[in-house]
Amino acid sequence: GKTFVSPLIPPMGYRLIEGFEENAAPLLQGDVLENEAIRIRFSPDGGILSLWDKKEKREVVEKGKELNQLIAYEDRPFQYDNWELAPYYKEKSYRVDKVIRREEIRDGERVGFAFIHSYCHSTIRQEITVLGNSRRIDFKTEIEWNEPHQILKAHFPLNLRVREVRYDIQFGSILRPSTQNDPWESAKFEVCGHKWADMSEHSYGVALLNDGKYGYGSLENDLSLTLIKGGSFPNPNASKTIPAFTYSLLPHIGGYEDGNVIEEATLLNRPLKALDLAGSFVKEVSCSLVSLQEKGVYVDRVKRAEDKESYIFRIVEEHGDHHAFSLLLPFVKKAYLVDLMENRVKEIPISNGQISLELAPFEICSLEVCL
């Protein structure tokens, strides 16, 4: 039951592993958590006072601030109680800083602290952990929320200077201002984002990932994520039964493209699954259904065709660039470009199990393959 970093797994495939080779686990000493890439110093209330990037020799936390500040705000919108967030919600705020217990977590290569917070009639448990060689910090969160008309946000004041933040949307991303210089910018105080939001300078940035919380905010260098919205209509108990969720902080070199933000967010939302195959017979040690080496191009979905004995691959470009690349499909006999209704447009030639394709910025390609 321990957590280990797995060897490289083939894309859309599997690898048989007989026993794990345990790597060096992060070090936990006093209020400091450290691995090969970063060093974290915690405050008594569970905030992060310092996040030092050891490889880049750079402090990530804005001077005098803390990362992962949990703040509750009074939330009484004009209407649409569980949907609308009024622009004046920050006028009444309450810091969630009472920690009733702190526990150490030593789970193989996953090491960190669990902080149990008490706030009014509510309880928040957070496991803040890192792996042995990763910059990513995970915040696994369980909340019992009994505060009607209060919204809970996690704030990350970063040592960055930017004017825009990039937010993930389906098959792409959008830029929104982090300033409020006019009414149009001020109206964008809360932004919808899917799996990640990224605040980057030219050579360094920080992404905030999540596996199910889609309300982001940014003001200057403060990036925030909405965790709970305690509305009472139409369901007064909606916020009381929130399942466990995880959000993550990912410092990275370069922009979101070079920092592997999309890849890390995908791993958070679709983690690897381990199966016990003791006594089973598997012919190949490893196998891959499909692979490509082009950065910025992703096989987002694989599904059965609606009315044929074939499969549909949804391939997308997410870096905003043109790409000419090869797709390796070792088991495919025929391939066709299809439209969204899965009507065949044209046949694609296959050479040694490879298909050559071109994609424009943010283009979506649907490919039908016959095995």
Rank of each mutant, 00 (worst) to 15 (best):
F281I: 12
D211F: 02
F156A: 04
G217H: 09
A207F: 01
Y256G: 13
K153T: 10
I40Y: 06
W145H: 03
N23F: 06
I40S: 01
I116K: 13
S248T: 03
H202E: 13
F139H: 13
S232K: 14
P183Y: 09
A274T: 14
E257R: 14
D222Q: 08
H117A: 06
K92F: 15
K140P: 01
P26D: 06
P243A: 10
E74H: 12
L292F: 12
V299E: 04
L275E: 09
N260Y: 14
Y88F: 12
R161P: 00
P177R: 06
Y311L: 14
L49F: 01
L67D: 04
E164C: 02
L49G: 03
P330C: 05
T241P: 00
Y214K: 03
N343L: 07
R270C: 10
W196C: 04
I253L: 08
L85F: 04
D211M: 06
S200Y: 05
T226I: 13
L160Y: 02
E74Q: 10
E257H: 11
R95S: 11
R163Y: 10
G64D: 05
K140S: 14
E220V: 09
V369H: 06
A274K: 14
K273Y: 08
A25C: 03
T123A: 11
V297E: 01
S310P: 10
L208M: 09
A324I: 12
G108F: 04
I355W: 01
L27F: 08
D81K: 07
T3I: 12
E36L: 08
F4M: 12
F156C: 08
L292S: 09
A154I: 10
S173T: 11
Q293D: 15
D276C: 04
N133V: 05
A238H: 13
